Amino acid sequence: MPECAFAPWTDPGAEPLIRFRNVTKRFGDFTAVRDLTLDIYEHEFFALLGPSGCGKTTMMRMLAGFETPSSGHIELAGQNIVPVPPNKRAVNMMFQSYALFPHLNVWDNIAFGLKRDGMPKDALRERVAEMLKLTHLERFARRKPHQISGGQRQRVALARSLAKAPKLLLLDEPMGALDKKLRQETQFELMDIQEKTGTTFVIVTHDQEEAMTVASRVAVMDEGELIQVATPSAIYEAPNCVYVADFIGDVNIIEGAAHRAGEDRYTVHWADGQAPLMAASDKAFSPAQNAFLAIRPEKVLVTAERPADAVNAIQGRIHDIAYLGNISTYHVEVAGGRMLKAQTANTRRIENRGFTWENRVWLSWDSTAGVLLER
C-alpha cells in the first residue's frame, strides 16, 4: 500500500479494529510474546516482520484463535475475542501451504466454506464469480490445483479466504513458495485486492522487501517484543535502534563518542587520527556518550578525490565489489580495518566504470544522511 493520506494511527480519535493489550504467551518456560500492546486499524495492510522465533507467528495464531494468551487480552471491533472459538471469529487465515483440496476444482475450492455455512445457491454462485473475477481466475474455474501454477494456487487460496468477507484476513508467509519474480508480481496483486475489498490484512513475513512493499505499517519484532512500529519509509529512514537499522536493508554502523556541535548537530569521534563525523539528530546525547551512526550505502558517494564541499569524508581502499546489475556495492576498508559499503547505480556500461579492486577512494555523505542512535 503506497503511503498517502491513509494514516488512522495518527488520529487520536480513531478506533483500532484490533487491540493487543499487555499480551503475553508462554510455552512452558519459554516466553514467545512478552507484554505486547499494539493497535491495528481497519483497512490496514499490516506486516509483522522479524526473524524465525521472534513471536510473529504466535501473534497471528492468537488472533486466529489457535493459541490463547497466557495473560492480557485481544479485541476485534471492540469485542474481547480471547474466549471466542476460531470458527466464530470474523477472521480468516491463509496458510503458507495454501491447504487447497486437491480433488476439488478451483470453483469448488472457493465455494467450500460458503457451502458449509449454508449460503443459498444463487448467492453462492454470485459470490464465487465475484471472487474469481477479483483474482483473475475466471478461465481456471474448472481446473484442479495440480493443473494451475503456484501463483494461481496462491490466488485460489486468497479467493477462498476472502469469500466469506471476513473483517480480518491473516496471511502466514503467503508468498514463501513462489520464485522471486512471481513473488514481486503477486505482492502488487495482493495490494490491489486488499484495496478493492477494504479488508484488513495482517501478514507475517521474514522477507523485509515484501513487508516494505505491501504494508501500510510494519512491526519489527525480536524475542517476543515489538522493537519499532512505523510506516515502511520511517522504518527505513528513521530506525529507532541499531537492531532495526541492521535488520531492514543494508546499513553501515559506525560506533563512536558523540559531542554536541550546535543545535541538533553532533560530532562523532570514531577512530584515532581521523576527523570526527558530523551528524544531525533531534535526540539529545550527553557529552562523549557512546553512539551509533547508521548510514545507508546508497547515501554514500564514492569518488577518486575528496569532494571539496564534503561534510563527512573518509578515505579507504576498495576491498570487494558486488555487481548486481542495476547497482554495484563497493566494500571499502577504512581506518582501523572497518568495512563500509557504498552503492552506486549502474547508469553506464560496466567497461566504462571508474573503480576496481584495491583502488583508493573517498566515501562522503551529508550530515543529514545518517541517523544517530543510542543503542
Rank of each mutant, 00 (worst) to 15 (best):
I254D: 00
T267L: 02
K180I: 08
N252G: 11
A14M: 01
T368S: 09
R89E: 12
K341C: 01
E189Y: 04
D29N: 14
P239N: 01
G337A: 15
P145W: 12
L190C: 10
N352W: 14
E67A: 10
A215P: 07
N346D: 14
E298A: 10
V334Q: 09
M60E: 12
L171M: 15
T213I: 12
N240T: 10
I203S: 07
R375F: 13
F188M: 03
F201A: 01
T10Y: 06
L100I: 02
A99T: 03
S328N: 14
R61Y: 12
A7W: 04
S97Y: 15
W357M: 09
G316L: 00
E42V: 11
L104I: 04
F46M: 01
G78D: 15
V156E: 04
E15G: 12
A245D: 00
D172G: 00
T37L: 07
A261S: 09
I295P: 01
H136L: 07
P2V: 09
E3Y: 08
K121D: 15
R153H: 08
A64V: 05
N326M: 05
F201P: 01
G256I: 07
Q187W: 11
A234E: 14
P102E: 09
T231G: 08
G273R: 13
F101D: 03
I314K: 02
I40A: 11
W270V: 06
F285W: 10
A90V: 08
G55V: 03
F355A: 02
R317S: 06
L182W: 13
L340H: 07
Q289N: 12
D29H: 14
H269N: 10
Q274C: 13
A280P: 04
Y330C: 13
L363D: 01
I254T: 09
M1H: 12
V300I: 14
E15R: 12
E67S: 11
F112L: 00
F45L: 06
R296N: 05
Q315N: 11
F45K: 01
G150P: 13
W362Q: 06
L363T: 07
L49K: 00
I350G: 11
M221N: 00
L168S: 13
T24P: 13
V242P: 12
R19A: 11
N252D: 11
G28A: 05
I81P: 13
M221D: 00
G151F: 08
I295Y: 01
I314G: 02
I254V: 06
C4W: 04
P16G: 06
E263W: 04
G50T: 04
G316I: 01
H331A: 15
L169C: 12
A261L: 03
A215V: 01
Q154E: 06
A322T: 05
S149T: 08
Q315Y: 10
